[in-house]
Design a protein around this nucleic acid. Sequence first.
DNA 1: AAGTAGTTTAGAATGATTTTAAAGTAATTT
DNA 2: AAATTACTTTAAAATCATTCTAAACTACTT
Lengths: 132, 132
Amino acid sequence: MNSKKKLRKAGLRATKQRIVVADILFNGQHRHFTAEDLQSEIIKIGKHMSLATIYNCLKSFRDLGVIKQVESLSETAVFDTNVEYHHHFMNEETGELIDIKPSEINLSKLPKIPEGYSQSGLDVIIKLRKNS
Amino acid sequence: MNSKKKLRKAGLRATKQRIVVADILFNGQHRHFTAEDLQSEIIKIGKHMSLATIYNCLKSFRDLGVIKQVESLSETAVFDTNVEYHHHFMNEETGELIDIKPSEINLSKLPKIPEGYSQSGLDVIIKLRKNS
DNA sequence: AAGTAGTTTAGAATGATTTTAAAGTAATTT
DNA sequence: AAATTACTTTAAAATCATTCTAAACTACTT
Ligand SMILES: [Mn+2]
Ligand SMILES: [Mn+2]
Ligand SMILES: [Zn+2]
Ligand SMILES: [Zn+2]
């Protein structure tokens, strides 16, 4: 099934722009990318698309669930007076952080570190929602 | 020891502004805050300080190691074609992400979820540096 | 007290993202 | 197939966090 059909099936209009983006993204290989990464790629294949459109498109794809947006704690810099190594609970609605002592978490199995690299940090973020 | 002495000992000039910030931050209780949070608090106690100064001050405190800046993956939105639940390696120099399958990580001990909340997500980020 | 280097600040600049509003187009209805 | 309509795209402006600039200021040294 081509991108055009998939878009229609998902309830999105099959615009030229969405088809270009879908054709680039859904080629079978997974990837991490920014809106600008995508725009560069689009320019490389001789096409043009405004950044606003790319953001619109990525957000509708994300809302559809066919891509996801990597979680970033916050758009703004957050500082912490606790300088000990520790992890965080994050209230998803408010962004509020609560400390977790490393002793409260146990990672009994860790993945193999890629060749040529070594681990320089570990962050665990447990996201919370208020009970309904 | 007062803030003035502590700043001097750390090799920073004991400016009026740094003393105000230190007096607010180092009162014994830990906290998470943004530059603007701090500015609001400063305004509340009848003082004035430019945001540029607050950023300067927080960055020098951070570089000293007396506060830390909470890690955020990236300042720009990153999208991922892998919509399955998974974790990430992150190259600290480049920001590049590599997927980690949940089966490669085992959290055998998790902290107690705060009263009235439930867990809505879990993110593990393992930071990497190239071997020297 | 004078000198010097580090610091503060208003305001401009930057970079990512969103908004505006006008023009364009996909899907639907005649 | 043309008309209709709602959704989409886009350039440009706006917004927001953060950094930069350059001039005024001030903490510490001599
Ligand atoms: Mn990128
Ligand atoms: Mn805040
Ligand atoms: Zn913390
Ligand atoms: Zn991923």
